[in-house]
Amino acid sequence: MHIAEGFLPPLHAAAWMAVSLPFVAVSAYRVDRLMREQPQIKLLLAAAGAYAFILSALKLPSVTGSCSHATGTGLGAILFGPSVMALLGTIVLVFQALLLAHGGLTTLGANVFSMAIAGPWIAHAVFHGSRRLHAPLAVSVFLAATLGDWATYLVTTGQLALAFPDPVSGVAGAAVKFAGVFALTQIPLAIIEGLLTVIVINLLNQNSRQELDLLAFAPGDVR
């Protein structure tokens, strides 16, 4: 989902920057407030950031014969809310843009929007939607992390299609083409992220119940 440096026309790059900036600013404010009001959860917040660090560093093979990586932003989104993840995801993306030439500074706004904003919000919405439908905790976590991951790649697909519409078939045609690159490959990888996130939530439920209670996460699901 990393759009490479310079690979969005200046206008698109600026527009995505403008869209993402308020989210990241609010996120910085929320993280700051969270750490001051509930300093006990600092370490869990760092662990959620670390999870995104790990998953976005591992490029995994997919049955399509391509490689791609998960995002790891769903975990933090369901624990702390999606607005907190914008900052953590941005940190990951800046690290990769500066040290790995992966993604870029000009495309940071677009990449932040797909990985650190859209993914977490979809994960959050799916999680609460499936909880409201009385789905078991593990199922809700799995669906949230899987669909959040997949959504990130669909957003990238849309961003590239808007920037590089097909001369004949337009934005829709370009979207189909870019989806051919991103969407199919990502399905098994999104499932991997879903399963790993369930494992982490299981471990948290076992040993970090105090912090989960502070966050009012899945009350009544104590095992």
């Binding site: 490479a4 490689c67 500074l105 590089f164 083409k177």
Partner: peptide, 24 residues
Amino acid sequence: FSGTDNQGQNAIVTANPDYRPWFE
């Protein structure tokens, strides 16, 4: 097993041979 990020980049270059990345 090439990366999808690179494939996306190649798809842009193939479809828009005139596009030049404006930042390195």
